[in-house]
Design a protein around this nucleic acid. Structure first.
Lengths: 207, 207
DNA sequence: GTTGTTATATGACGATAATCATATAACATG
DNA sequence: CATGTTATATGATTATCGTCATATAACAAC
């Protein structure tokens, strides 16, 4: 080899990383190949030496973002006492800082809707990353049975993703802030879900 | 007038309605003007007699979808006894039927991420429709103070939106079903959020 | 049927998209 | 420094986009 071994790999990574930020901000279809390469300080020419297609880059960029989120959660959790970890992760996710910075935020509020319309292989890739996020949340969750913990964790992520999506979609203002508060309360507040419904069981009250 | 008065209006509505279904399925940028008009059985020619721009149609299509959801909730609630209404709306929203039919489903899981990147006026329009959804949920919510009820309702919608987005994004399979279950449990189940955390207060435990 | 008006269709414009072929420039080795 | 290889750039191709100008067709009134 003439070029030092990881030169190509480094460039590849740089494209992926910058694309990951750009796509989280503009959506999966929001940047052209020319723009995507410009983010890495390159022109569009060598693109197909690095990726088989534009879709392949999008996939790598999403995976990168998900890995970044997992790493962030691990670090955040390790800095806190065991009892505070869950609330710390939730507060970090449901912050105005996260809402206002999609570039460096979680891929799910920004790109999951696009993945829902993407290929099955892309969806499987996202699923495996999401499982990792669930695993981390299960670990920091105060007890419960392992079966319930998984459900709680998945529900918490759904609430957080929906809260960020909506708080961004309604634009800056009181409603946006209220949605973040409501998400926090839903995930780890107690005021509701405490009172019991008196009505007969529905599919909501399943085991 | 030569043409009977509402001919134009009817066509306009037909375009909006079909576009609303198509865009919920393919995303806000997922259909061209040509395709959008074809959905209404027309060619692209007369488009700019009906709409100022493509974005204007997208806005109307989203508003149509949100109104449709509000109407659906109203009808669904009126068919049920007072105590069952909340669970009925949640079960309807967090169903595999809804997950598998974005065309006729809520606009929020399908298009909110796009609106988050859209114009402030588009975001304000969505916000006012979302307030209506919150209002309905508040009405069918078993008591609590009005302040808390609003927060519970907003949190419930966030959870539901996130659950549908994620359950679609991971593709068909166990995880997708689990996410719907987790969303239902988060919104109206009791098993978690019942046990109290022992750790010191965090931003999650705010008043 | 003719006329005046409105609704829709045909076709074109310039811009931009993804992709690919080929040329240039950067590099480690001899 | 020369050489062979790899990385990146230039430029072209084909397609499709939103938009608009203009032509045709549908209609109600005369």
């Amino acid at each position: 080899m003439r070029y030092v071994g990881d030169h190509r790999r480094q460039t590849h990574s740089r494209i992926v990383e910058n694309a990951s930020y750009g796509l989280r901000q503009n959506g999966a279809e929001g940047l052209s190949v020319v723009e995507l390469m410009k983010l890495a300080g390159l022109t569009h020419g060598g693109f197909y030496n690095h990726f088989e297609s534009r879709a392949a880059l999008v996939g790598e960029a999403i995976a990168f973002a998900m890995d970044q989120m997992v790493e962030r959660w691990k670090k955040l959790a390790n800095r806190k006492a065991s009892g505070d970890r869950f609330e710390t992760l939730i507060a970090d996710y449901l912050s105005s800082r996260h809402r206002d910075n999609p570039r460096h935020g979680c891929a799910l509020p920004a790109l999951a809707a696009d993945v829902a319309r993407s290929s099955p292989s892309e969806q499987r890739a996202l699923a495996s990353k999401l499982e990792k996020m669930i695993d981390i949340l299960v670990e920091v969750l105060p007890a419960d049975g392992p079966q319930q913990a998984r459900q709680i964790a998945a529900g918490a992520i759904a609430t957080m993703v929906g809260s960020i999506v909506l708080s961004r979609a309604v634009g800056a203002g009181k409603l946006s802030d209220d949605i973040l508060d409501a998400g926090r309360m839903t995930v780890c507040g107690r005021p509701h879900n405490r009172q019991r419904r008196t009505a007969k069981a529905t599919s909501c009250d399943k085991p």
